[in-house]
Amino acid sequence: MNGAKKTINVKVNGESYELSIKPKMTLLQLLRNELGLTGTKQACMDNSCGACTVIVNKMAVKACSVLAMQVNGKEVTTVEGLASKDGKLSILQEAFLEHSAFQCGFCSPGKLMSSTAMLEEMEDPTEEDIRRDMEGNLCRCTGYVQYLAAIKSVVQKRKEGKR
């Protein structure tokens, strides 16, 4: 039958779920409506702003443009999964806080997920790498400067930590 529900298994922020969903459900709807993980935001609905960015199997993707069916068997991390459960922020979250890298905060979860994936993938990104990899995350409040600085500070810290 058209639209009949199907079952998927997905790991979200370390928890395993078996869910019965309509095939047309997007990953974004799955996270927000089924799992109550509203940290991932919907802002443009046409794959152009990056507010819904989450990490699927280590890659940043836009949850509005991935069907939930397509993450069957995969691991998803959302902004709720960045900090430790006992309240310790991730190094990037700390940096965003220190640099006042957000204002209204609506696009911040997406930016955090993009930059988290980037710093996993690249050891020592250049300024250009950072800007290119953050290109998909629109922001209207901050003018980008403070959060680019926050990301750079983490890169710097990591380098110093290595020495």
Binding site: K62, M118, R132, G136
Partner: peptide, 12 residues
């Protein structure tokens, strides 16, 4: 490829 849409789109 660097100029194809955004990283998120290129990843998926």
């Amino acid at each position: 490829e660097k100029s194809v849409a955004s990283v998120q789109t290129r990843n998926w």
